[in-house]
C-alpha cells in the first residue's frame, strides 16, 4: 500500500465492476422490456403536470411503486397491483420515491379519478382530512371575485373558502391534476415482467 497509481486503478476497477452489476446489466435487462400492454405515453398536459409534480417535490412523500401482496397490503388499500419495470417506460425522471408520508400514487388516477376532488385536496388537504400533513398549495390557485368562463372553480367547505370570492385553479394546478388522473396502471402485468419477486417465495400468499 505504498503506490498511488495501482491503488487508484484497483479502486476504479472495483467501482467499474459494481457499475456493471448495478447499472449496466440491470439497464440492459430493463431496456429490453416493451411497455406494459395498456400503457400509453403521457399527453402534453400530463407531461406539464408531471414537471409540476417533480418541481414541487411530491416524490419526497409519495412513492409510485406498490408492493406485492406477498409483502404488504398495498393492493388491498386500492393502490393497485405490484408495479413492474415496464410500467415506467415513459417516465423521465423516474419518480419511484422511497417515502410514504402520504399514500402511494402509482394508480391514483384509478383510485381518485375526480378532477374536482383533486382541486379541493391540493388547495387545502385539511378541508378533507383533518389528520393530513400534506402541504397546502395555495400558490397553484388564484382567488378571484368571480369566475370567468372556462375557469375551474375549486369546491371548498365554508371553513376554507375565502369570503365572497372564488378559488380558481391556475394552469399549473390543472396540468398537475391531469397528470395525477393519468396515473392508472391497473392493467395486468405480463408474467415475465421484471420486478423484485424476492417476497414471493413465502409459498402461501399472505
Amino acid at each position: 500500500m505504498n503506490r498511488v497509481i495501482p491503488l487508484g486503478i484497483l479502486a476504479l476497477a472495483i467501482l467499474a465492476f459494481a457499475t456493471l452489476m448495478l447499472v449496466i446489466l440491470p439497464g440492459i435487462q430493463i431496456r429490453t422490456e416493451a411497455p406494459t400492454p395498456g400503457l400509453r405515453p403521457y399527453s402534453e398536459a400530463e407531461l406539464r403536470g408531471r414537471a409540476v409534480y417533480v418541481s414541487e417535490g411530491c416524490v419526497y412523500c409519495h412513492s409510485q411503486q406498490p408492493r406485492s401482496l406477498d409483502q404488504a397490503p398495498d393492493g388491498e388499500r386500492g393502490w393497485g397491483r405490484a408495479s413492474v419495470a415496464s410500467d415506467y417506460f415513459y417516465d423521465q425522471p423516474h419518480q419511484l420515491g422511497t417515502m410514504r408520508t402520504g399514500p402511494d400514487l402509482q394508480n391514483v388516477g384509478a383510485r381518485l379519478p375526480s378532477e374536482a376532488w383533486h382541486m379541493t385536496h391540493l388547495y387545502q388537504p385539511r378541508a378533507l382530512y383533518d389528520w393530513s400533513v400534506m402541504p397546502a398549495y395555495p400558490y397553484l390557485f388564484e382567488v378571484k371575485d368571480k369566475a370567468a368562463p372556462g375557469d375551474v372553480v375549486v369546491a371548498l367547505p365554508e371553513r376554507y373558502a375565502p369570503e365572497g370570492k372564488v378559488v380558481v385553479a391556475k394552469p399549473r394546478a390543472r396540468d398537475l391534476v391531469a397528470y395525477l388522473r393519468s396515473l392508472d396502471r391497473t392493467f395486468p402485468a405480463p408474467p415475465t415482467a421484471v420486478r423484485d419477486d424476492g417476497y414471493s417465495e413465502q409459498g402461501e400468499p399472505r
Partner: peptide, 14 residues
C-alpha cells in the same frame, strides 16, 4: 427461486 413464483402469480392474474 422466488422469481419463478412471482411469474406464476402474475400469470394467474392475467
Amino acid at each position: 427461486q422466488a422469481v419463478g413464483v412471482g411469474r406464476q402469480e402474475r400469470a394467474e392474474q392475467i
